[in-house]
Computed example of a mutant assay.
Amino acid sequence: MAYRETEKMRLRKAGIRQRIFDCAYHRVSQGGFRNASINLVAEDAGVATGSVYRHFESKAELFAEVFREATQIELDKVESALTGQEPALVRLERAIRQFAERALRGPVMAWSLIAEPVDPLVEEERLNYRRSYAEFFERVILEGIEAGTLPPQDAHLSATCLVGALAESLVGPLSPQQQGPVQMPPVGDQSRQKVLIEPIIDFCMQGVSGQRR
């Protein structure tokens, strides 16, 4: 007779898998992917190392799932910021500001998502992440062009440039070297807004509107 997995066993396995995932996610959020070795994740989850590989084919697969979960949260936030009846430029500014502020509030996870060296499978997820942002921005830019509030332009190219500018401008401030004892003032501090976030927004808005804020 063929073995049939009971519902109790299925739930137990699902619970172990979720616990492994949660421990990996926590380690990445606290120290990046470099801080989430399989041995440490297994120890945190209270399972043997081999058990991790029974639920995830490889470390790269586990990391890719962590990456997808973390980026979906960020994508949902930006998509929400881009939604509304305001002019396209207002919504773009709101989304870019939120992206930058959230990144600076959680620099470790943001660095992991934007720039930390990762396995090719995770890098593929990163490309999808950036592509999704570009698609959101492109949609709003096209709406602005159609409404006459933004000048004619290649919306796809402009959106891609926005994503690139955002990512590259934050790489330095988010890098582990900047996360030591000497840090910039908190996000709510006006000096931080002035020296980092506002210039990023100015650059992006001027790029799509052709006008200074």
Rank of each mutant, 00 (worst) to 15 (best):
Val187Thr: 15
Ala64Phe: 00
Glu101Leu: 02
Ala167Gly: 07
Leu170Cys: 09
Glu74Tyr: 06
Pro176Asn: 01
Glu124Val: 05
Ala42Met: 10
Ser209Ala: 11
Cys161Glu: 13
Glu198Ala: 13
Val41Tyr: 02
Ile16Gln: 10
Gly164Ala: 12
Phe67Ile: 03
Cys23Leu: 01
Arg27Lys: 06
Pro186Gly: 11
Ser37Ala: 11
Val28Lys: 02
Ala167Tyr: 08
Val195Asn: 13
Lys194Tyr: 12
Gln183Gly: 05
Val187Ser: 03
Ala115Gln: 14
Arg19Leu: 06
Met205Trp: 03
Ala115Glu: 08
Lys194Gln: 04
Val108Phe: 05
Phe67Cys: 09
Glu116Asp: 15
Leu150Trp: 02
Arg105Cys: 09
Gln153Trp: 03
Val78Ser: 06
Ile201Phe: 06
Arg27Gln: 05
Leu92Ser: 15
Met1Asp: 10
Ala100Ser: 13
Ala48Phe: 09
Ala14Lys: 15
Thr160Asn: 12
Val108Gly: 03
Ile201Arg: 04
Asp189Ser: 10
Ala60Lys: 01
Ala95Tyr: 06
Ser29Thr: 14
Ser158Gly: 02
Gln206Pro: 00
Leu127Lys: 13
Arg17Tyr: 06
Gly164Gln: 12
Ser209Met: 01
Ser58Thr: 14
Lys77Cys: 02
Glu198Arg: 04
Leu150Thr: 13
Lys194Met: 15
Gly106Ser: 12
Cys204Met: 08
Pro185Thr: 07
Glu123Ile: 12
Glu61Leu: 10
Val108Trp: 03
Glu146His: 06
Gln193Tyr: 08
Leu170Gly: 00
Ala70Arg: 09
Glu143Cys: 06
Phe99Thr: 02
Gly46Thr: 01
Glu143Asp: 15
Leu40Ser: 13
Ala45Trp: 04
Ser112Gly: 07
Gly210Arg: 08
Pro199Met: 12
Met1Glu: 10
Pro199Gly: 15
Val118Leu: 00
Gln30Gly: 02
Gly172Cys: 12
Asn39Lys: 04
Leu40Val: 10
Phe136Ile: 05
Gln153Phe: 11
Arg27Tyr: 01
Arg213His: 04
Ser169Met: 15
Arg12Val: 02
Arg10Glu: 11
Leu127Arg: 12
Leu150Glu: 06
Gln206Lys: 10
Ser80Pro: 03
Glu116Thr: 15
Arg94Ser: 11
Ile20Asn: 09
Pro151Phe: 01
Leu11Glu: 13
Thr49Ala: 10
Ala64Glu: 01
Thr71Lys: 05
Val47Tyr: 11
Pro107Val: 00
Gln179Trp: 04
Gly46Asp: 05
Gly84Phe: 08
